[in-house]
Design a protein around this nucleic acid. Structure first.
Lengths: 138, 138
DNA sequence: CTCATTTATTTAGCCGGCTAAATGTTAAAT
DNA sequence: ATTTAACATTTAGCCGGCTAAATAAATGAG
């Protein structure tokens, strides 16, 4: 349980990581989590919340809040489905579409910044290990 | 920006990771973040908040809230410092001391569970890469 | 000694996670 | 046709992060 333990390292890293993501996205008027919702919508405009929940492996209330905030800031619009009154569909606004270019820039800036200290080989190794770590928790 | 991107993997993993930690610690009546505060106090009983902030690399309000909650649930006690009225010192209660044994058990259970899919070599590799990743962000 | 600065904590408010439980709607079973 | 089950969303409330700004107390400069 000392500070060089892998759990300690991981916890420190994950906190820092999310914070850095947030800071970079804040520069273009977005919050850290929102880009994943947008990223899904860029390929699946008009999704309902349930699809986003499934795709991002988050819970309904989490996605609900993110969608609401994206709507409040004008990146998406929420419309009731005409056939199924239970669900609503999320549509990108012009702003939601246009922001993609900026997100791509920040995204790659973030990736570069996060992995500066790693060689390309190390990065691939890290990616491979992450995949193994994720697989298990399914 | 596709789903196999390393940023995606990392975000998925970090979310899952924190959630798993929380679930395991909940079993013994603690929240995920609290064990790091306790872990510091087990070695530095009577610290003030500022020391915890520095040690865990978090912000003052974050630590403040965690300490308050630990006090509310009876793991620590907060006492005003006799010489410096600005600060208070955090002392472990009997409960705060006794919980250590259980935390150690959950901690190692968590580590085992998180890294089941990795060989010992891979785990060391992962740890080494993490250290590199953390160093940079200082 | 006084006043400005630093230090330690607290308050208020936001985001991204979560669980539990309430609504409302649709689909399925009998 | 009615009742039950499943589904999609919403509400309420909590934790762990954060920033910005308010207190309050101690320290340092002159």
């Amino acid at each position: 349980m000392d500070k060089t333990s892998i759990i300690y390292l991981l916890t420190t890293f994950t906190t820092r990581y999310r914070d850095n993501l947030d800071k970079l996205m804040k520069e273009i008027g977005l919050h850290g989590g929102q880009i994943f919702v947008l990223n899904w919508l860029w390929e699946h405009d008009g999704s309902n919340q349930a699809e986003i929940v499934k795709s991002l492996k988050l819970t309904a209330p989490t996605v609900y809040n993110m969608v609401i905030r994206l709507a409040e800031t004008g990146f998406v619009e929420i419309k009731k489905d005409e056939f199924d009154a239970r669900m609503s569909r999320i549509f990108l606004t012009k702003r939601g579409i246009d922001i993609q270019a900026e997100v791509v820039i920040q995204w790659s800036k973030f990736e570069r910044q996060t992995f500066t200290n790693l060689t390309e080989t190390e990065k691939m190794m890290f990616s491979m290990l992450l995949q193994k770590l994720i697989e298990e928790s399914n």
